[in-house]
Amino acid sequence: MLSIKLLKWIAFILSLLPLIILILGIINFINLGPNIVEEVLHRTGNTSLNLLMIVLLIPLMAKHSLFRNFLILSRMLGLFSFFYAALHLSVYLFIDRSMSILSIQDDFISRPYILAGMIAFISIIPLALTSFRRAQIRLKELWKKIHQLIYLGTASAIIHYIWQMKIDLSIPMLYLVGFLIILELKKGFRAT
């Protein structure tokens, strides 16, 4: 079995990799295509959602002794997910919309997927704020309740993804199916 320290380093570097690719793209060292803002938005959004899904999967995987150590990765991967979500939102507000209040307001009113994305982001803020060990010890049962918000966050993020698709829903629908399977497995897990 991998040592905990090594496992953490591997997870850290793998989580950082998407950011490194984006930076190399922005400085034009690698080619992310002619619509780089859109590409950065897609990549940060996807990475954030992927990490959320992994955080949800970890407790299920940890049932097997082989993956028991993975439990200690939840906090780091969760924080990385929040980090990519924050990048995603910042690029949308400051780069894509150039802080144009009118354009952002129009998006909120006319485009429900923007609202779903906002709900997803807001619901994972408390998780990030209470992610450190002291908070976990102090808040006890309340901490567990707060961290149930991950389900609302993931569900809203998937709805955000589905809703913004132009025509082909197959990939975001795979996420939805994956999410529902995880929910179902957790239910069975708790019942036993």
């Binding site: 619509n35 803002v37 859109e38 894509d96 144009s100 354009s103 129009d106 998006d107 006319s110 485009r111 913004q164 132009k166």
Partner: peptide
Amino acid sequence: RWSQAYER
């Protein structure tokens, strides 16, 4: 889906 007021 997309605001048509601006373009990239």
